[in-house]
Design a protein around this nucleic acid. Structure first.
Lengths: 195, 195
DNA sequence: GTCTATAGATTGATAGAC
DNA sequence: GTCTATCAATCTATAGAC
């Protein structure tokens, strides 16, 4: 299946560059340079920069759905699944220390630019939010599942933010362990009530 | 004292615009337009955009030092002082929901741009980090004061990030209360050991 | 110190040949 | 589908008159 279309290559390159350099700072020349096509050809596939952004966000939404489903398939307990989420910070540590969280940094940038695609970018957050909320419900905290989801989402955002500012891998490890322990404590809380 | 120099006015305007629009997206025309001076006059005061950025960061560092000192003067217990820090999220809620945290968003942007002033921007984080670390030491947690400082810094960053993404004031209130309760629990932990 | 005028590069975007 | 050539706007930055 090495038949990726030029359009797909453009989205690939734009996805990476938007993450690494930011949306605003990435020019058509940057993207067409990375794909090794002319700027003219570029406009055959995407009329405006916003159009590429939309395609990139849609791709990220699809990829996120796939990721969440894979966690659903590979693990058995909700606590394990939530820890899968927290562990993205370890899995993607190198990139996160260089460029921050791809979801958070894009949303922040689009908010500042008053960009019309901001709500679309926030959908990526919502995907994680609703999924986490579902896991916390399964964990036995249906009454405050959404608040717990937002709390964990905020913690992971904070860890990513400081990780990229201070370039501190030990801090990430510490905070991830801390967050997983917190998830476990929420799980045991329910066990105690049942016993 | 209404004798603010043009230079000061430029730094004022740049400070606000860098926060609201981001550094990269703010042009000389934006700044000179806000100060109502010509672009030519502008260059009399600052030769390059990086020079303005340096001045803005220096001003923010000075302002942060003043803020931290005021907390030191106005409150009596370290737990109270730490809660002063957490409460910035309430005090500046409107702006944070619009533009995020001024410290975090600038550091993130400069990191992505590989900008030479990134370490200077991170100094703003370090100021809070060291101050918080000192407060946690006074609270009786000298052994892990820096880790606690980083933890709280990360939490506030995460809250600011999600606040601007979701525009959710109730979430900010909830998380701030949560964080203050956490600080209080750390304070009582020590009281119990002493009694 | 403030202004106008302008250079030189880069930007997003278009037209049209192959 | 891919290319070259080009436009109009905007950007950082400079020169020089007042």
């Amino acid at each position: 299946m090495n038949t990726k279309s030029t359009r797909d290559h453009i989205i690939d390159a734009a996805d990476q560059l938007f993450y690494q350099q930011g949306y605003n700072h990435t020019s058509f020349a940057d993207i067409s340079g990375a794909v090794k096509i002319s700027r003219g050809n570029f406009y055959h596939h995407f009329k405006t920069k916003d159009e590429i952004l939309g395609a990139v966000i849609n791709r990220r939404i699809t990829n996120t759905r796939t990721l969440l489903n894979s966690w659903e398939d590979e693990t058995h307990s909700p606590a394990q699944r939530i820890c899968c989420f927290v562990n993205i910070l370890i899995t993607n540590q190198t990139k996160i220390m260089q460029y921050g969280c791809p979801v958070g940094t894009l949303a922040t940038e689009l908010t500042k630019l008053h960009h019309s695609a901001q709500p679309e970018a926030v959908k990526l957050f919502t995907l994680f939010r609703e999924w986490l909320s579902g896991q916390f419900t399964q964990l036995g905290h249906a009454d405050r599942a959404d608040a717990l989801a937002m709390h964990l989402l905020a913690r992971s955002q904070g860890i990513a933010s400081l990780a990229s500012a201070f370039q501190d891998a030990a801090f990430v490890k510490q905070e991830v362990d801390d967050a997983c322990a917190w998830v476990l404590s929420l799980s045991q809380e329910v066990d105690q009530k049942c016993s």
